[in-house]
Design a protein around this nucleic acid. Structure first.
Lengths: 190, 190
DNA sequence: TGTACATCAGTGAACGCGCGTTCACTGATGTAC
DNA sequence: TGTACATCAGTGAACGCGCGTTCACTGATGTAC
């Protein structure tokens, strides 16, 4: 079977996207090569036609997870500029997000594992984080730019922490209590 | 060689403590049986004289990590009751804590991985978390008990999130900015 | 008091399994003649 | 127009290594006689 021009690129992209989800669901040491290929309807052997190594794929997949989670950004066009951060807080601290790590924020799902990764991966993520800060800071509450940056760190830390903690609790009522407490606090203190 | 009465218990305890540190440093899938035995000056073979399986040890070690991190509690006797939570915030968000995951808070070091663990482990951690809440709530800021509980969730989420995020950044100045921003915010908004 | 035996924490080699990687092969389609 | 060959994404078996677990063995000391 011979394929159309774009076929290989599309397959590669599909593998990266599926891996981005699997990593958030199963952790950095969760999915294996066979598993990510199967998730894309392929078999192990073909893997090295697309990637030099498992690490190459994983690095791309983490980056993909970061840009996935930037999609919220574009879906916020209708919301007034000054209310956008509140909408982000509501969505980030929703039961929906808490229950679906695989399509959610990679920081809440993977931060400690990324912190232990090789320096090259960490550097890459560090700069993705920097980009994220720059993109979001303008929507944050606060009178001056440095103040908005500090508030970004506070809001983002509180949200990521809350979701990480909620996810390790087993009782839905407890999980909800954490999410709601932090959500209410953030929405009322800026 | 035959050993004194307490020898075996002490050895077992030493393995658990070393594993508690290794898990926070290397993650739940980091250290192997050989590695934790070596860290205690022993060889692989003896492992199953102390534990039924690697999972049994790991479950105990996570619990150990939780009770390790409760030691802060007892070192706070000199601090006036109403200032204790501030001292906890300062220590939790210190460079010292950020740079030493292995002796630090297991939530900041392992939360997402624990969230993915087997239900039995998660249930155990869930109840350890509940105990932690109960122990700390009385020192939290707030007029009423429910308010103090909500504030505990906010403060703890923000601290754990900040340290997790700081740890994945590569530049010390950036790490510090996150820690300081969150610390100042928490100390000034309750 | 002396000797043979039991005890048991710890050793180190071996086994089996999962996983990353390699490799010879497949087979449908485009191209050369 | 028809036929032989090249291409190349994908297949599936095999290899090697690490790791959890098992097991026969060690050797120092306590105990029985």
């Amino acid at each position: 079977m011979r394929y159309e021009r774009e076929h290989k690129t599309q397959t590669r992209d599909r593998i990266v996207r599926n891996t981005a989800r699997k990593l958030r669901a199963e952790g950095l040491k969760g999915p294996g090569v066979a598993s990510v290929m199967k998730a894309s309807g392929l078999t192990v052997g073909g893997f090295y036609k697309h990637f030099r190594s498992k690490h190459e794929l994983f690095a791309e997949a983490i980056a993909q997870a970061f840009s996935d989670s930037e999609k919220v950004y574009s879906s916020l066009q209708d919301v007034p500029r000054e209310d956008r951060w509140k909408e982000v807080v509501r969505r980030y601290l929703s039961t929906e997000h808490c229950d679906h790590p695989d399509t959610g924020c990679p920081v809440a799902a993977l931060a400690p594992e990324i912190a232990r990764a090789k320096l090259t991966v960490r550097k890459q993520i560090s700069s993705l984080m920097k980009e994220r800060v720059e993109r979001w800071v303008e929507f944050m509450p606060g009178a001056t730019a440095p103040e908005r940056e500090r508030n970004f760190f506070v809001i983002f830390s509180a949200m990521a922490g809350a979701v990480s903690i909620a996810r390790l609790l087993t009782e839905p009522a407890e999980r909800e209590k954490v999410l709601v407490s932090v959500r209410d606090h953030l929405l009322h203190s800026f």
